[in-house]
Design a protein around this nucleic acid. Structure first.
Lengths: 193, 193
DNA sequence: AAAAAGCGTTGACATTTATCAACGCTTTTT
DNA sequence: AAAAAGCGTTGATAAATGTCAACGCTTTTT
């Protein structure tokens, strides 16, 4: 179970973890299972944990006044799930995170994360790398959203996240792109030619 | 000139800078002026610097095949301007950054930034704080973009960035929101009632 | 002082996307 | 095995937003 995470850390850092560091990671991260359709985080709750996905698939979404869900993130293996705003500011989350497939996570509190960043150099390094990647991905997605039509956004999505197409139903992808499932269906039909 | 930056760092950290640390910051950051309409970063170039804006206003934007500009960021005093993707990956930037008002910056290379994060604890702390705030702001903006109509997006923008309304022309705001200037003009007219 | 360029607005119209309802098909629940 | 729920598609129509052209006004350039 923890092996996946240790490998992940070593793959995203220049200095390999020492035995002691591995031990700290193993005792700090707690295994957690979230079954399909169950919540990992529920709107209104303060996000207490960061979860590393060992196996499974999840989504993060908000629900508007009309009850429509808007998916802001999709997660699969080796992704980190949490609501950073809620976790850092200690405010009630505006989002839900639930499992689309039965999911196995390794969870840690924010305090534990900060602690490990300080005590384990490669953990800090890995975290910074993830921050950078996230910032880059957000910027790209934002630029795509304000610059492109639905069709082009979908194309870019397929190019950048081919794994997601396999794992999630089409109406999740539509929501992630900010369009309706009907529009995505039509866009795909067009693009097939 | 550097005083603004030193104050900024001290305001975003728990440990105040020592004399030696201040000296390092002062020798590392170089002053740079960018006059209105001049580029700080041009599409196709690799972004070499991070700029702290001491005075002035800038924008970051991409240009699509039709020649239309899409503004991804607006910056004023006490903001950090750079294209993180280009700077970190050493790839040609897809963006332009230019000055809307005559602007005074303090610039440092990415290597210098990394160096200072390592040598100056509060600099690292400040950087992490900025990363967190950025991540939170990106998430909010993304959620707003995929969830809301143009009108609501504009309302949220006014609430969260009232300073920008004063500093930038309306068609910049429209572009930032991913709509045309005509649509923003109509949305505002509607909202006035 | 005159000319040019930039900005915001408006109208007419086109295009994109959303909404609502219905349908077949598959998967899940009973 | 039957019933229900979920998924993707399609059609008809509505709403949101974009496009293009024109106009007054202000600011900048000549």
């Amino acid at each position: 179970m923890h092996k996946t995470l240790l490998d992940y850390i070593n793959q995203h850092t220049t200095l390999p973890l020492t035995r002691e560091e591995e031990a700290l990671v193993e005792t700090t991260f707690q295994p957690k299972k979230v079954r399909k359709k169950q919540y990992f985080l529920q709107e209104g709750d303060v996000c207490k944990y960061v979860g590393f996905i060992v196996k499974g698939a999840m989504r993060q979404y908000s629900v508007d006044e009309k009850g429509v869900e808007h998916i802001v993130h999709l997660f699969i293996e080796n992704w980190w799930a949490s609501d950073r705003e809620s976790a850092l500011m200690l405010t009630p989350s505006k989002y839900n995170i639930d499992a689309w497939e039965d999911t196995e996570l390794l969870i840690a509190t924010i305090a534990d994360m900060v602690d490990m960043m300080e005590k384990i150099p490669s953990f800090g390094q890995m975290t910074r790398l993830m921050d950078n990647r996230n910032a880059i991905a957000s910027q790209r997605r934002l630029n795509s959203t304000i610059s492109n039509t639905a069709e082009k956004r979908y194309e870019e999505f397929v190019d950048s996240h081919p794994q997601f197409i396999q794992r999630f139903p089409q109406h999740f992808i539509a929501s992630f792109l900010g369009i309706t499932k009907e529009t995505l269906s039509r866009v795909r039909k067009q693009a097939m030619k």
